[in-house]
Design a protein around this nucleic acid. Sequence first.
DNA 1: CGCAATAGTTACTTTTTGGTGACTGAGGCA
DNA 2: TGCCTCAGTCACCAAAAAGTAACTATTGCG
Lengths: 108, 108
Amino acid sequence: MLKKEELPDCPVATTVQLIGNKWKLLILRNLLSRPWRFNELRRSLDGISQKVLTESLRSMENDGIIIRTVYAEVSPRVEYSLSELGETLRPILDAMQAWGQEYKESFE
Amino acid sequence: MLKKEELPDCPVATTVQLIGNKWKLLILRNLLSRPWRFNELRRSLDGISQKVLTESLRSMENDGIIIRTVYAEVSPRVEYSLSELGETLRPILDAMQAWGQEYKESFE
DNA sequence: CGCAATAGTTACTTTTTGGTGACTGAGGCA
DNA sequence: TGCCTCAGTCACCAAAAAGTAACTATTGCG
């Protein structure tokens, strides 16, 4: 979790620092609908490497926007879900989704 | 300007491909209020190098979200402003601004 | 026993990105 | 005359990000 002093003055810059990155945004897009397992995310995010996926998940967990839950099962199951804070990011992703939709439709 | 075939299926991924990058988002934040000159942007975006600023501006110009206007004056004046398409990004930046604000306030 | 799946970590290499400094050319100013 | 500003470009080098491959532990299954 970032400390207050490490945050930029500008609110947009603050948001960008936490989620202004390709893979984090795509992970969030997935987690908005339901919890996802590690390998499930990996298969869904075309082109992401295991390393980058773990690094992104760790970073988002540290920032308090996602929650990692380990189920003591066979075989091991780890689920990633949005925290309450993560849920509050939904309007941003919704706006991006809407814009992308419009943009793509403008080509038809 | 990207062609339709180069865009990912997912609308969020499409948006991310165009503006999912630290400096582009901060440039947009500035341009939402008014047109900015090159060196004015450079001074405002703390830590950006001239190279990265020009590259970001060129890329956004190619994608049709900003407009570069050269005024034949002494000394040369170049202004960057949002295109109509760029204007439609406002809700995304607004959502990011609102979230960052809330997030920062949660530390007080 | 040996293999498969899960969810990683670690070390090493490669690719991409970004930074630095020099240069442009036109006019303003002391 | 020489230096300043503006808005860049270009070449080169360093740093950061990402890819790759090997390895971990656990348990079930045939």
